Computed example of a mutant assay.
Amino acid sequence: MSHQRVAVRCPSCSPGSETAHEVLNRGGQATVRCGDCGHVHKTTIETESTVERRVIVSQEGESDEAAVEIPPDADLSVGEEFLVETDAAILTARITSIETTDGSRVEEATAKDAKTLWTRAVGNVAVNLTLHPKDGGHDETRSVKIQVPGDEAFVVGETHEYGGEEFTVERLLVREDATGYDREGYDYAGDSAPAKDLKRVYARDEDARTRAWSGW
């Protein structure tokens, strides 16, 4: 069986910087052999500890519970994304709220102070569309929901096709947990946002069947 190798300082040939050592015997003080000069000495091997934290992942009105291992000093904040494994799948989750050990809800905390991470799955998301007919009438305005990859971008002024719907984006409404935006609504040509950041998309219906119906 091969010995574990670690990076530690050697008092003989490298007291100022770490070099590769072979672990001969573990314990409170491990016995190691320097890979450069062969000097055998005792040292403390630092091991990075982690804390287990509960994660609640919401997706399409349903919630799954999981757990993640995080270094205790890791900084957590709303909007941060990470991979989490639930019983059903491995998901990309975005933090929407952090519950601390004293029961408070905060936007930022270190892992050691966090108890539960409330998150939303953003790998594949449902986007709410409000579509109005091309002729400008509002009696036939309809709301639909389409499933798209979370990173799929919607652009104001561009025509998109998803889930059997064809539409030209007119306004984007971003979610509260989306970061990097200076306002809630965007309606200038060229404005864009990924699906995972959107609360709703307002668009002109380009579906040929809808145009035919609105003409009756």
Rank of each mutant, 00 (worst) to 15 (best):
146 I>F: 01
88 A>D: 15
170 E>V: 15
90 I>R: 15
125 V>R: 03
36 D>E: 15
79 G>E: 03
186 Y>K: 01
156 V>N: 03
23 V>F: 07
137 G>D: 11
214 S>H: 05
6 V>W: 02
32 V>K: 08
29 Q>F: 07
8 V>H: 04
195 A>N: 09
14 S>F: 09
35 G>Y: 09
117 L>T: 06
97 S>C: 04
153 A>N: 10
32 V>C: 05
114 A>Y: 01
116 T>V: 15
112 K>E: 14
28 G>K: 13
9 R>I: 11
199 K>C: 00
95 I>G: 08
81 E>Y: 02
24 L>Q: 13
134 K>I: 10
156 V>S: 04
192 S>V: 02
119 T>N: 01
81 E>W: 01
71 P>Y: 00
155 V>N: 01
161 E>A: 14
81 E>P: 02
111 A>Y: 01
133 P>N: 09
85 E>P: 00
129 L>V: 01
151 D>N: 14
61 G>I: 06
50 T>Y: 09
103 G>N: 12
4 Q>P: 00
33 R>L: 11
117 L>F: 00
102 D>G: 14
124 N>E: 15
17 S>G: 03
7 A>T: 10
86 T>K: 06
64 D>A: 13
93 A>D: 11
186 Y>Q: 06
115 K>H: 09
90 I>F: 06
195 A>H: 03
163 G>M: 10
